[in-house]
């Protein structure tokens, strides 16, 4: 198989050498692939558009000794809204990073491919953190890491109360008796129920779900802990998404404060 076709999505793209890029592609048939796109940083390159992050297209790839080489790419969708919306672009980065760290090269997963592509299409209209949370939870379900939400992971007891104990280590909620040997965090029952809905609800009707600011914060934080624990590494994009929003607010505050006076 010296040359092969891949119906794939660019989930990572980093500069390489003089004018090349190393692309991480997630394809329907072959799973994760790493390939060099040569000369794509030059203005005359025809593959330039296809080598951009989050481009979905048909790639013709030459098999190499260590790295494969992209010889042609025809973009089918470039998700152009990501170029003009910072929040959506950050959410897409978090989704792509999650997909990258949770998968192994050469292991196809058509369900995960469809989920990712669907979520990238839906991200244009949906609230970013709602879709990101649903994506993360569904990815975990597909990969076999579905968190136990609402009953005890250890003994199966149906849990009740305002706040429930969630342990990333145990993989879900725990009852009072079983929690002793685990570390975890208290999460409001409403947030746990909402996470269940995020897994079960029809993706196309996800925008009907409503959540309060506290619930959003709690769900995102609980999920981040859970994902980082399972994949044993920090989720840079997920964390940076918050940092960037905080940094923006801090910069705006500083401009409205001291530096802002210069404009008055």
């Amino acid at each position: 198989m010296a040359v092969y076709h891949a119906d794939a999505l660019v989930i990572r793209s980093r500069e390489y050498g003089e004018s090349d890029r190393v692309l991480t592609l997630f394809s329907r048939e072959m799973g994760k692939i790493q390939a060099v796109a040569k000369g794509v940083r030059k203005p005359k390159s025809r593959q330039r558009a296809g080598a951009q992050l989050f481009t979905y297209g048909d790639f013709l790839i030459h098999k190499g000794k260590s790295l494969d080489t992209v010889s042609q790419c025809s973009p089918k969708e470039s998700f152009s809204y990501l170029w003009s919306d910072l929040d959506r672009s950050l959410a897409a980065s978090a989704m792509a990073e999650l997909l990258d760290i949770s998968t192994i090269s050469g292991q196809p997963n058509a369900e995960l491919f469809t989920l990712t592509l669907t979520c990238l299409f839906l991200l244009e209209q949906y609230e970013t953190s709602l879709l990101l949370s649903a994506y993360a939870l569904r990815l975990m379900v597909i990969l076999g890491y579905r968190p136990h939400l609402g009953d005890c992971v250890e003994c199966g007891e149906r849990l009740q109360g305002e706040r429930l104990f969630f342990s990333s280590e145990a993989g879900g909620t725990l009852c009072g008796r079983c929690r002793e040997s685990y570390s975890g965090r208290m999460v409001r029952a409403g947030s746990i129920a909402f996470m269940r809905q995020l897994i079960q609800a029809d993706l196309s009707k996800l925008d009907r779900l409503r959540w309060a600011a506290w619930m959003r914060e709690e769900v995102l934080e609980t999920l981040r802990h859970y994902l980082e624990h399972k994949f044993e590494r920090p989720l840079k994009s997920w964390r940076l998404g918050n940092t960037i929003s905080d940094g923006l607010e801090r910069h705006i505050r500083s401009l409205n404060g001291k530096e802002g006076k210069e404009f008055e």
Partner: peptide
């Protein structure tokens, strides 16, 4: 430039310096 997947956020760039020279 901002690159969340590589862990490059606003603090790693010279944005603070830029904001100081807007007069």
């Amino acid at each position: 430039v901002l690159s969340p997947m590589e862990g490059i956020g606003p603090e790693q760039l010279t944005i603070n310096l830029l904001l100081k020279r807007l007069k």
